[in-house]
Amino acid sequence: MLTLTCPYCGITAEETELHPGGEAHLTRVGPTGTDEEFEAYMFARKNPKGVNFERWRHAYGCGKWFLAARCTATLQVFGTYKSQNAHPPADIVAAIRKSRPDWNPDWTAE
């Protein structure tokens, strides 16, 4: 059972205090999107073995949704950060690369 530290209230909570929310950093596709774009947004998930970014809500705590960078194979947690980020921030990227030198971000930073 995982423990994650909520970046909003600083509490290290166990999984039973949290609510999972699936893959992070999805970009919403609204009514103007094509079928393909909507399918990719609604259903296509990376589900990687390894570094993954995911949504968690501190449901039995401050109620905030936060994001976690975690290895799905070893369950190593590289860090947690606030939801109001379009991409994982630099310190999270650095923490991942420290443990996984071969890993590269699949987004382009603005």
Binding site: R55, R57, A59, G63, W65, S83, Q84
Partner: peptide
């Protein structure tokens, strides 16, 4: 929770 999700994350 649904409301808070959209307000916090989108």
């Amino acid at each position: 929770g649904h409301m808070e999700d959209w307000l916090q994350c989108e």
